[in-house]
Nucleic acid binder design. Structure first.
Length: 445
RNA sequence: GUGAAUGUAGCUCAGUCGGUUAGAGCGCCAGACUGUGGCUCUGGAGGCCGCGGGUUCGAGACCCGUCAUUCACCCCA
């Protein structure tokens, strides 16, 4: 027995493993860049209040999981338990609301939670995450989910299920909450102790309980997705429509919630499902979060339209996800996969392409085209705000795009894409499946 | 830890002797151009004047405190 051991819930990564880490990190960096996300690095500790404010005093994080300490100057600080709050703080503090919108960021780094360690759960773990600020459109939700899903796909994982739900917004949630409360009012006694607390403090979090009796009661409870206002309903429908037309399988999971006030509308998880059951078990068996068993939650995210305002900024829509890198690595290992890191060979040297679209049908087509371009090594950026073509051109110009691809009703009807070389101003119309070749020709010259 | 300087819009800065509604340039958003970027023009959003107290009829300005930042020193990866 050595004199010292690493602290409970932490890990040493030895040379053989760090090589795998590096390859996965390279994949993540290249992948994020290919969607037009920029890397942000924020401090590993922040003022404690930032987390109590954003996660909420009733959350598990604040109640029992934060590593909080006082520094020598008497400041109350906390090792970051998650990434979004710090990124939101940085977004405001660095004047990013005045940068071209939307602002798309990614981060990778250690997070700290005082929790019972178990398979796939540590006190220090590494999280990769992305955040999109300033885009209210369902397209942004779709892109965020796509970024996560495509990363797994690029790493070689296939048996994935996207669990999807909508938890409404400040307009429809109060009425839903009231419905939920009245459903449980007479049954409080049947709930476990934790749930009795939840019932009082934040009834939405009842859905997080793993206790069998509670889950049985939840089966008959009113579900948020059935109680959305018209705006939330149409938002949710458009997210699903987008995922569907990109060929991403998803399963409605009415029991999926985020109990924090600043979350709104879309919430999702991506679950590794080796049995390939499809996982439509709405409100059914308890989920095995950490992944000792069959299911493994690799990634969780959602929309948080209230966060920036909570931090003192102007009302600003936001959406993002966080992903546990240790879990991903472990999953890849279990599948006998190696993260096929970019290794600098394919790189992203092919150039930046902005895919401009006019109309909802074109938006989806643009997403599909952008996906093909990224796989060929391009950085491909799509509009997430439903802006005018003119604005999209400006955005593309500022993003440093070499090419502008234009898809509208005319192009869709003719099965073509307009390709404009922004340097020369030359524009040609080419069949949709020849776009890559056309860009290749342009790159030669 | 020691000393000094500085805090006005996202950024760089004006703001007269203490006086009425705090400005400019850049950036951002939008329009001119209803499907086309850079250039130009027009419009718009954006401010707890770091925070707290004091002096004064009146404070962005003066005084005190506090917090933050920057620089130098000390130390250090």
């Amino acid at each position: 027995m050595p004199a010292y051991q690493r602290p409970r819930g932490t890990q040493d990564v030895l040379p053989e493993a760090t090589a795998k880490w590096r390859r996965l990190e390279a994949l993540i960096a290249g992948h994020s860049a290919s969607f037009g996300y920029g890397e942000i690095r924020t401090p590993i500790f922040e003022e404690s209040d930032l987390y109590t404010r954003t996660s909420g005093v009733s959350s598990d994080i604040v109640r029992k999981e934060m590593y909080t300490f006082k520094d020598r100057g008497g400041r109350l600080l906390t090792l970051r338990p998650e990434g979004t709050a710090g990124v939101g703080r940085a977004y405001l503090e660095n004047g990013l609301p005045s940068a071209p919108q939307p602002v798309k960021l990614w981060y990778l780094g250690p997070m700290f939670r005082y929790d019972r360690p178990q398979a796939g759960r540590f006190r220090q773990h590494t999280q990769y995450g992305i955040e999109v600020f300033g885009a209210a459109s369902p397209l942004a939700d779709v892109e965020v989910i796509l970024v996560a899903h495509e990363l797994f796909a690029a790493a070689g994982l296939t048996r994935l299920v996207i669990r999807l739900n909508s938890i409404g917004c400040p307009a429809c949630r109060p009425a839903y909450r009231a419905k939920l409360v009245s459903y449980f009012e007479g049954r409080v006694g049947d709930l476990c102790e934790d749930c009795q607390d939840r019932f009082r403090e934040n009834p939405l979090r009842l859905f997080d309980c793993k206790n069998e009796r509670c889950r049985a009661l939840l089966l008959g409870a009113p579900m948020s997705a059935d109680n959305l206002c018209p705006e939330c309903r149409s938002h949710f429908a458009r997210v699903k429509e987008g995922l569907g037309s990109l060929g991403l399988r998803y399963a409605d999971d009415p029991g999926l919630v985020r109990g924090l006030d600043y979350y709104s509308r879309t919430v999702f998880e991506i679950v590794y499902d080796p049995a390939g059951t499809g996982g439509n078990e709405a409100g059914g068996a308890a989920k095995d979060e950490a992944g000792g068993g069959s299911h493994r939650v690799l990634c969780g995210g959602g929309r948080y339209d209230g966060l920036v305002e909570e931090l003192g900024g102007a009302p600003t829509p936001g959406v993002g996800f966080g992903l546990g890198v240790e879990r991903l690595l472990a999953t890849l290992e279990a599948e006998g996969l190696e993260a096929a890191g970019e290794g600098g060979t394919t790189g992203l040297s092919a150039g930046v392409v902005y895919v401009a679209t006019v109309g909802p049908a074109a938006e989806i087509a643009g997403f599909g085209l952008a996906r093909r371009l990224r796989r060929a090594g391009f950085v491909a950026i799509c509009d997430l705000l439903g802006r005018s073509l003119r604005s999209q051109f400006k955005a593309g110009d500022r993003a440093g795009a070499r090419w502008m691809l234009i898809i509208g009703d005319e192009e869709l009807a003719a099965g073509v894409v307009a390709v404009r070389d922004l340097a020369s101003g030359k524009q040609t119309s080419v069949p949709a499946d020849e776009v890559l070749a056309e860009l290749g020709r342009g790159a030669q010259s």
